[in-house]
Write a protein that binds this DNA or RNA. Structure first.
Lengths: 329, 329
DNA sequence: TGTCTATGTGTAACCGGTTACACATAGTAT
DNA sequence: ATACTATGTGTAACCGGTTACACATAGACA
């Protein structure tokens, strides 16, 4: 690979001049610039980003820490981040934390050593104090961390109320909620939305909460068990995977969806359109969330002011077959 | 951040000595080493990977180019690569190429400028000649590129024969194949497997090929159209997404799966266990493929010899509800 | 006693860029 | 004519590591 000195020699100028041409700063004579560009082309010169990073303390690279890319919620998010970063000539280092603080810390350490310009973080685990001393710009995605850090989340509370009300409106009166893990903030917000809406609908004392962990299998079993003991005609699952679990459980018990039990999920991952019946869900603007987080991070990196620190995006009720039945109200 | 010079000063030694301690090479007195380590701890010193990369021309970073992380085949693959790389202290830059040569080329260029130590490539588009001059170690994943480059693929041909034979064995005689895109090598191999097996079964003249593009929607429509014109009792889809499309089309036409038409997919993505009925499929060892590609890349980077250049992993027939019917043979 | 080798440490060049500073020239305002 | 400014270019230090080389010391061996 040719270096800047090779180019300088060939063009008969100093490295400083080549650097000026490269970075479009300082004064360079038109004719000189022409010669330099010619030399670059002839040598197929590409500046060494590592050398540049060393001096500038910036690497045109960002870190993206997600719990697990294998979780169907994240690929679209990751894709969005990558797309936006790509436009601005940033490169994305992907990290899977499995929600473990330890791994998160390690990754942050490595990312700092590699001079990443910023980090997008999806976590529940990290205590805000820990983040205090990282001098890298951070944007928190999907799950809020602390006031101080810019965040992009969807409106979990409203979404949950929307879903619960929707079940009510298609005639459900005994509406169960499959709750996500306790340590996950968005799961708790959705749970709160369910509770408040149930009360608002005058069904406060008919609440039925099934404990889930955001996984299909566990949800399926929990719903099987719940079906044996309780009467229900609607299920609001804390995420789509659990909604599929519920769907399977209900069908396996010989009940029909939506006629006997209506089901609605949460997230709006592609999977919801692939089941039979197709799943109603509360759709989060996943791509938009990722893209926005990326744009905010870039603004931070470039030192531009943010209009807002916390962005909450609206969610959308997607009515599909799993809740489409004659209203019995 | 403390630098190596800070550490040297604090420990009362030269930077060379600190570097020796850091890299465990050269002679260092035990007592000196103790002092240096002490100083490192006190200053919370972490070596700057960028400076190191500049001198060593290696960055403990690899590039991973996939067509689209949003395609459900890839998250698990990516996860596997990341897991293995993490063990060996490498970091992964994720790139989505959308199968476009242009994007692939750009990414490779950027990756080289960032001194990545190697690249794992999933592509059909790139001509082997283009790769010729890249001096970075490359491993080709899922789709073979050229003899010269190490590759990890699953046995598409055998898998396709397996799937076709399985449909035959559960009683199907008019077996259709939904073919993947023409430019994708593995789609062609699966197609070939279907053809050969059909002939071997004495059904050579009963072949029915439906053109798909690996997408659910398009496959669904193509199958709808095909159902109107042709008689069939089994469908072997070139991938799982198209199998779901077929499933939907068949159900929408009022036919039963598997009783009227049995369906089998290909890939073994998690989705296949989420449909009703659950989809039979030919399962590729996706995680293992990713992990193996990662291990091979590391061997290459470290200059260790490879036992083999081309690895072909076996696939596994997963019989589920969508092909479970009484045999009519 | 002289030579050789193993051990231990420091100096400074190097990786490939960026940029502060010095210096030169030409044009312009006074 | 003088001073000042805008333009144009080069030298060398710097970013934070690594390592070739020089040098010093001590013990072993002839």
């Amino acid at each position: 690979m040719a270096t800047i000195r090779d180019v300088a020699k060939r063009a008969g100028v100093s490295v400083a001049t080549v650097s000026r041409v490269l970075n479009q700063n300082g004064y360079v004579n038109e004719e000189t610039e022409r010669r330099v560009r010619q030399a670059m082309k002839e040598l197929n010169y590409k500046p060494n980003e590592v050398a540049r990073a060393l001096f500038k303390k910036t690497s045109k690279t960002v870190g993206l820490i997600v719990p697990d890319i294998t979780n169907p919620f994240f690929p679209e998010l990751v894709r969005a981040v990558e797309d936006v970063m790509n436009i601005y000539d940033y490169t994305v280092i992907l990290c899977n934390s499995d929600e473990k603080v330890e791994k998160e810390r390690e990754y942050i350490e490595v990312l700092k050593q590699k001079y990443v310009d910023g980090v997008i973080l999806t976590t529940n685990q990290l205590a805000p104090e820990e983040v205090e001393e990282w001098d890298v710009p951070i944007v928190v995605l999907d799950r809020p961390l602390h006031e101080r850090y810019p965040s992009v989340v969807a409106d979990n509370y409203e979404g949950a109320r929307l879903a619960t009300r929707h079940l009510y409106e298609v005639g459900c009166r005994r509406i169960a909620h499959i709750q996500g893990p306790n340590h996950v903030v968005n799961a708790m917000e959705r749970f709160r939305g369910y509770q408040d809406e149930m009360r608002a609908l005058g069904l406060g004392d008919r609440q039925l909460v099934i404990q889930g962990n955001y996984q299909l299998k566990q949800a399926k079993e929990a719903v099987m068990a719940a079906l044996a003991e309780h009467d229900m005609d609607g299920i609001f699952a804390g995420n789509d995977a659990m909604a599929v679990g519920a769907l399977k459980a209900v069908q396996q018990c010989g009940l029909r969806v939506p006629d006997d039990i209506a089901i609605i999920g949460y997230d709006g991952i592609p999977l919801t359109e692939m089941t039979t019946p197709e799943l109603s869900t509360v759709s989060q603007p996943i791509y938009e969330m990722g893209a926005m987080a990326a744009r905010i991070l870039i603004k931070q990196i470039e030192g531009k002011p943010l209009e807002k620190l916390h962005y909450q995006l609206p969610v959308q009720l997607m009515v599909r077959q799993s809740t489409s039945r004659r209203k019995t109200t």
